[in-house]
Simulated assay, not measured.
Amino acid sequence: MTSRCMRLVFLLAACFLATGCPRPWTPATRPEEALREPSRLMELRDDGEPEALKTAIAESLTWLNTRSADERFVFGPRTVTARELRAALEHLRSRITDGLTSAELTTRILEVFEPLEAAGGEDGLVLFTGYYEPSIEASLTRTEEYATPIYGAPKDLIEVPLEPFAERFKAERVFGRLDGRRLVPYWSRGEIRGGKLSGQGLELAWAKDPVALFFVEVQGSGTLRLPDGTERRIGYASSNGRPYRSIGSLLIQEGAIPREAMSMQALRAWLAANPRQCNRVLDFNESYVFFRFLESSAVGSLGRPVTTGRSIATDAKLFPRGALAFLQTERPVRQPDGTVAWRPLSRFVLNQDTGGAIKGAGRVDVFWGRGPDAELAAGMMKQKGRLLFFVPRRTVAR
């Protein structure tokens, strides 16, 4: 065995062999509980392109450069500053070179970082889903064919970060509007569809299919295909602050779609077959997303572009934003005969986004980019797996 391989084995053993008796895994409700010592051995084999990882790290670094150097990032039992996290990521990025093997990448990461494992859900595992950048037909002017408005953020929408009131409300915020001197909830999806925002000049464009626009909201960004053949990208600008409610869960409860058959593809097929039910079902999710035009690819909650297969969305109240992580699960792949097979997915990723449905230590959304393969992964992924976060080693931080 070469000295490099021996060193890799030593690092893996030192990082992942649990000490003492394993503790019961209970759902985490605070950042200090969200990450723990790894419960058992886990192979860190990266199946992605190193250059894409380097790109994702660069986006986290760009965001970290806008933060106060002393801002604290909670990694479960550990806390590091933005300065320390930035230094560790910069060091790692400088060591990702052309031709780097998976084993070499793992070794270089473990020289700088040490792993902690996400507490997961009640079973200690994480549920992985996917999201992507859909493409829909739209027009910049309203016509009989293009009649569903795509709204920008309203001027009367008020966003209130709660962290300044108490640190326990970190990453939490409420949205509303003024009714006299009172802040009240903003209009629901049904109220907005009914015309509450009409006549304010908020329309960025007009969609051909309201169901297609709904799924752009769920994904958080998308591409508008205009009648002249050009494209415009849109991304999240704000929301009405109403809680996200899954229309998939509604249709499962009503017996319309069996739980085991539920997917984004199944949802769209059911809505297409039941057009008279569309408004009722879509309005069940009172959450509504407002958009803005983008000059680049899809943008995450850090305000930076997300990287295909290398960016994830987690609960911002529990996990450190911009941090390096590692996931181990499965992804769907379409076979030449049209069937779908499931293949292992294991890679280093960056925590660069969040979402209304991504709540708790047991939920992660993986960004898959654009195109049919991305739509397949986003629509079908609902696989269990494990998630690690990497905190700068104390020696590196010092």
Rank of each mutant, 00 (worst) to 15 (best):
R292F: 14
Q200V: 06
P149F: 11
I234H: 09
P22S: 12
Y132I: 03
P344W: 03
R276K: 14
S301Q: 06
Y131I: 06
F16Y: 15
R182Y: 08
V306I: 15
I234M: 07
A269K: 11
V9L: 09
V349W: 08
S221V: 12
R168P: 00
L271D: 11
A166M: 00
K384W: 01
R36N: 10
N351A: 10
A212W: 10
R386D: 01
F165N: 04
Y244F: 13
F165V: 13
I150C: 05
L92D: 11
R40N: 09
E172L: 12
T143C: 03
G229Q: 06
D98E: 13
T141Y: 09
R242A: 11
A87T: 06
I192V: 15
R4G: 07
G371S: 06
P258Q: 05
G241L: 01
G300E: 02
Q219H: 15
A103N: 08
A212F: 07
E286D: 14
A14P: 00
T66C: 04
K384M: 01
R276L: 06
A256Y: 10
G220K: 04
I192Y: 09
I247N: 13
A18C: 07
A171H: 13
R40D: 14
G99I: 00
G369C: 07
G379P: 12
R181W: 02
D209Y: 05
P243D: 06
G190R: 10
M264L: 15
R30L: 10
E295Y: 10
P210L: 02
M381D: 14
